[in-house]
Nucleic acid binder design. Structure first.
Length: 503
RNA sequence: GGUCCUGUGGCCGAGUGGCUAGGCAGAGCUCUGCAAAAGCUUCUACAGCGGUUCGAAUCCGCUCGGGACCUCCA
């Protein structure tokens, strides 16, 4: 069995994963900025790294999964204005910053639960770690890689690059950018005159009077800069060097590059061994993002309440949609694609439900159909290798889909129950459960286990069966059609039974 | 302008130098009182041109198209 490999953005190639401490993994993922409601694009990293988390645990690792909440404002530069994003929005909505932050944090948590993402081990907030950030900045200043200017503190990228480049940690090691180019092309920004070089980035910003979020610091009242929170919190909870750092590709530069520089100064190491980046969700080929005015918020996505949506899509449909693509490929949104995912998931889930109902006798040792046995066993045996190959969830799902006709055929009696050995049947049940439920985190969405509804429908199905036996099709069709219009679909099974499904 | 990624059939998407990806949609057939579901079969592919090779969607080059990052961004 091939060992688990991840594509490491740092080395730009797949590498076999080995944890720094045997049996334990430290995982840090950049969390949301809670200045607004999460949209479809945000769903991807959190689902992707939920799979990473689940899979590592499945493999037996004890994982500490840290995902921060960015609740202290980052900057928003538009033209000449430079305002704290959160305080700006807060002014518009006439809310206290922390009230706004709480509101969107709650919404974020709601969305994560809807997606069935396991909550991280630690979910630290930026505002809760101001002290740690200040200490880190002081250390960087003391080492000579940052300077103060008018109450703000900037990281000296050029000096860092000169010194740490010689130690194989140049600025640009992650993103592949060349600093000289940066110096030429960085856009003109506010406070630029405070910086020694255009590429320098803020560690601490002096708070203008209108800023609501502000903290005391050795440099006066202000607030932390763009990148220091992740360095401070990942160091605090995972140490100077940990296993995996994840996030969206758009964070690779400058955010993660800056994190590396900050941590390298303080801890003399690149903070993480593996850097994993998920690709973007696009809409009409364009990245979903505020600046493109093409975002679909998660609440809109679920409800269908958005002009470009022809219907709502359930959280599990979205999750399945995301899993059907490799995480490093762009994924293009369209109603057609989501509907395909919805139907595909239903088909998969019905087969899975059916599979769980099969009794495995335990005494079939010789397969009745050797070709089929070999086929099923081959598919099942290959799943782990696909998963280990940089989490090819798309390929795993394709493999599981190959077994769906087998399950359905057994159910319909088209394939004998003795066609497969008991061990293969058991393996199939186990693998479906392991992948769909444990690793992919899919779950039943429509509650069919309502006892009272089941009793009523059982009765109705009985009545209809009697009507059909009398060839009273007017009655049987009336029952079926009316139930269908009420959202309940009856299906006459091959064995004479009736099953029902909420649609 | 700089750095990088990408172009697969109606749609979404996986992919190893030679072996059917898969899903959705379409068509035919089977089962069925009809329907739904299901099963079987099946049509549309690897942007274009050239090169390497016994053989390339898969490697190389060029052309054209799309995108990301360079600025907060998942």
């Amino acid at each position: 069995m091939p060992a688990l490999q991840f594509y490491n953005s740092l080395s730009r190639q797949k590498e076999v994963f080995q944890s720094l401490i045997p049996g334990k993994v430290g995982l840090y993922v950049c969390g949301p900025t809670v200045s607004g409601e999460s949209h479809l694009g945000h769903a991807r990293p959190f689902i992707t790294f939920d799979i990473v988390y689940r899979y590592l645990r499945h493999l037996g690792y004890q994982v500490r999964y840290v995902r921060n909440i960015t609740d202290a404002g980052h900057f928003e530069e538009e033209g000449r204005e430079s305002e704290d994003k959160i305080s700006k929005k807060a002014a518009l909505e006439k809310l206290e910053p922390m009230e706004l932050v709480q509101k969107y944090t709650n919404l974020f948590h709601w969305a994560m639960r809807e997606f069935n993402n396991i909550e991280p081990s630690i979910e630290p907030t930026a505002t809760g770690h101001i002290v740690e950030q200040i200490v880190m900045i002081q250390k960087i200043i003391a080492d000579g890689y940052a300077y103060e200017a008018n109450g703000s503190v900037y990281f000296d990228v050029e000096k860092y690059h000169r010194h740490f480049g010689a130690r194989n940690m140049p600025y640009g090691i992650l993103s592949g950018r060349v600093l000289d180019d940066q110096l030429e092309t960085t856009r003109e920004l506010e406070s630029q005159e405070e910086k020694r070089n255009k590429a320098d980035f803020a560690l601490w910003k002096h708070a203008a009077p209108e800023h609501i979020m502000r903290w005391e610091s050795p440099w006066g009242e202000g607030f932390p800069g763009w990148h220091i929170e992740c360095s401070a919190m990942s160091t605090k909870y995972l140490g100077d060097e940990f296993d995996i750092h994840g996030g969206g590709m758009d964070l690779q530069f400058p955010h993660h590059e800056c994190e590396i520089a900050q941590s390298a100064v303080c801890n003399h190491k690149i903070p993480a061994r593996f850097w994993l980046h998920n690709n973007m969700i696009t809409i009409n080929g364009r990245k979903m993002g505020k600046s493109y005015n093409n975002v679909i918020k998660l609440s809109e996505l679920f409800s269908g309440n958005h002009e470009i949506l022809t219907q709502g899509y359930s959280p599990m449909t979205v999750r399945f949609f995301i899993l059907q693509t490799h995480y490093r490929s762009t994924l293009d949104f369209s109603n057609e694609a989501l509907q395909a995912a919805e139907r595909g998931l239903r088909r998969m889930w019905e087969a899975f439900t059916q599979l769980n109902k099969f009794e495995v006798s335990g005494d079939v040792v010789t397969a009745g159909d050797l070709d089929l046995e070999a086929h099923c066993f081959g598919v099942l045996s290959g799943l782990e290798a696909d998963m280990n190959d940089d989490l090819n969830t798309a390929k795993v799902l394709a493999g599981l889909f190959e077994l769906v006709p087998v399950i359905n055929s057994i159910k319909d009696g088209l394939i004998s129950k003795d066609a497969l050995t008991s061990s293969t049947m058991r393996m199939m049940k186990e693998m479906f459960n392991t992948y769909l439920v444990d690793i992919f985190g899919l779950k039943e969405e429509k509650k069919q286990d309502d006892q009272k509804l089941s009793a009523v429908l059982g009765l109705i199905a009985d009545i209809r069966r009697d009507a059909r036996a009398r060839k009273d099709y007017a009655t049987s069709d009336k029952i079926r059609n009316q139930l269908l219009s009420a959202g309940i679909q009856l299906k006459d099974e091959k064995d004479g039974g009736v099953s029902w499904e909420l649609v």
